[in-house]
Design a binder for these strands. Structure first.
Length: 464
RNA sequence: GGCACCAUAGCCAAGUGGUAAGGCAGAGCUCUGCAAAAGCUUCACCCCCAGUCCGAAUCUGGGUGGUGCCUCCA
């Protein structure tokens, strides 16, 4: 069992990971709200979740990973009032909310599969856990942390002394209502909804002790994480954007409900930027995996790009960076293949040293970029299957399909007869050392749309 | 106004007290008629100022700059 250091947002420093149960890890990751396809920024969070899990497994832990599928309830852009995303999307497309949720969930799973992100052990859906959420809300009402208003049940943040301990924000420092109109029913501007009472035309609503309604947008994580991981669990992950509101609220709910600490380690991934700034629809720079693939890159090349930056650093996505990742990944595969076919025996002590450096990197708060550097350096050794086999072991963390490297299959393109004839003429010219004619024919072939490369025993034609 | 993160070569990026990993691009060389491919080699004193220290990219203070959050957001 390797010792892991992880950066705990709660402590604002790296800590040695100590599991609740020896040899086991329970982790919960805030999952997608399935009303529109995930973009590559969203996906960074799941690559992080995946790396974390893989490193624990590599280190000898048994991991239970839980990720929610939010198919209800997140309100759109107006605080605790107004419409929710699922309903909005449903109205826009004319589809049933659950129909949209099913479609988007399938697409999400296909996306994470393509990126070699292991599916979590459990992916509970919010709509399957409404009774569990109602029970938490009721408990918070019973013990005095929540109150009922005309439009819902709210959590009273002033009753929880620990509010703000994750993000460092203080209640009185916030500019309430600066951009959002304050809900007049609330006792304190940042009290948040646990349960919302629904209007008759609201698309998703359930019976509750407070009439028909739907859950607030923080309660599902609290209800489901406890259901699947127990009252206190090891790790909760999510994007940095969740620190000030969502996770702060989760802590408040859970600790007030349970009466004790609920999560030992909070871990957050930084954002992906596009061309140095936030991705947004108005800038037209929100890309999905499908968009990246459509531009000629593979999901593995994209995964390589993710892996090249440590999870707590901002990752600036540019197409130039994507090109660099493509080049690097393909070169890497070429080197791996050469090692796979290598015949040199590599000294065991040398291999052990590379393994030690690799493990040192990954166990130091997921320093995957450093681990990649170790790999690159190792691949400079004389070509040896021993090196390849160790690289395969490293790939338990990278998950870059090192086991699938093989001789590049020449794309079977049909070469027109006239192009072939030109190539033959050029070959003859070369054999006669008529270089001027040879070069002229290369230009002709290029003009016809093909590139010609000389090989040891002839030539190779490819589409330009 | 508050909170947080960050600032290392043309680009991406690791390094958090002992003299700058790795990748992309570039340059040079080898090989090849040339080209392509491949291989080898090469390429930074770390935003600024002041301090602590035998020693700082790494710590402290002050600047400057960037990004995000304070509304749903990975």
């Amino acid at each position: 069992m390797l010792e892991l250091k992880v950066y705990n947002t709660l402590a604002r420093k790296k800590e040695i990971f100590a599991p609740i149960k020896a040899g086991q890890v329970g982790m919960y990751s805030c999952g997608p709200t399935v009303y529109k396809p995930a973009h590559i920024g969203n996906l960074r969070a799941y690559v992080f979740m995946d790396e974390l899990r893989r490193i624990f497994e590599y280190s000898g832990y048994k991991v239970k990973s839980v990720m929610n599928i939010t198919d209800v309830g997140h309100l759109v852009s107006d605080g605790d009032d107004g419409d929710d995303k699922m309903s909005k999307s449903a109205r826009e497309t004319g589809k049933d909310p659950l129909e949209i949720a099913a479609e988007i969930t399938d697409r999400f799973m296909a996306d994470i599969d393509s990126l070699n992100i292991k599916r979590p052990t459990v992916c509970p859906k919010a709509t399957d856990n409404i009774p569990e959420m109602i029970a938490v809300v009721q408990a918070l009402l019973d013990n005095g942390y929540a109150y009922e208003t005309a439009d819902g049940i709210y959590f009273s943040v002033e009753k929880f002394a620990g509010y703000g301990k994750l993000s460092g924000v203080k209640l009185e420092d916030q500019r309430h209502g600066a951009r959002v109109e304050v809900n007049s029913f609330k006792r304190h501007p940042i009290d948040f909804a646990l349960w919302k009472k629904a209007a008759p035309n609201h698309l998703q609503q359930w019976d509750s002790p407070w009439g028909r309604g739907f859950p607030g947008w923080h309660i599902e994580c609290t209800a489901m994480s406890r259901k699947y991981l127990g009252e206190t669990f090891d790790i909760h992950t999510g994007g940095v954007d969740h620190i000030p509101i969502h996770h702060e609220n989760e802590i408040a709910q859970a600790e007030c409900w349970l009466g004790h600490k609920a999560v030992n380690y909070w871990m957050h991934n930084e954002f992906m930027l596009i061309d140095g700034g936030k991705m947004s629809k108005s800038l037209n720079n929100v890309y999905t995996v499908a968009d990246v693939v459509a531009k000629g890159y593979t999901p593995m090349e994209l995964r390589y790009l993710y892996l090249n930056v440590q999870y707590r650093q901002k990752l600036n996505f540019t197409w130039a960076a994507m090109d660099a990742a493509k080049s690097a990944y393909n070169k890497l595969c070429g080197l791996l293949l050469a090692h796979k076919n290598g015949v040199v025996k590599t000294d065991k002590a040398a291999l052990d040293e590379y393994r030690r450096k690799f493990e040192e990197a990954i166990t130091d708060d997921l320093n995957v970029p450093l681990a990649l550097g170790v790999l690159w350096t190792m691949l400079k050794l004389p070509k040896s299957a021993d090196v390849y086999n160790l690289a395969l072991d490293f790939d338990k963390i990278f998950a870059l399909d090192f086991d699938k490297v093989k001789e590049e299959e020449k794309p079977q393109i049909v070469i027109p007869e006239d192009v072939k004839a030109m190539a033959e003429l050029r070959l003859a010219a070369r054999r006669a050392k008529n270089w001027a004619e040879s070069d002229r024919l290369r230009d002709v072939i290029a003009y016809m749309g093909y590139a010609i490369k000389d090989t040891a025993d002839g030539y190779e034609l490819t589409l330009k």
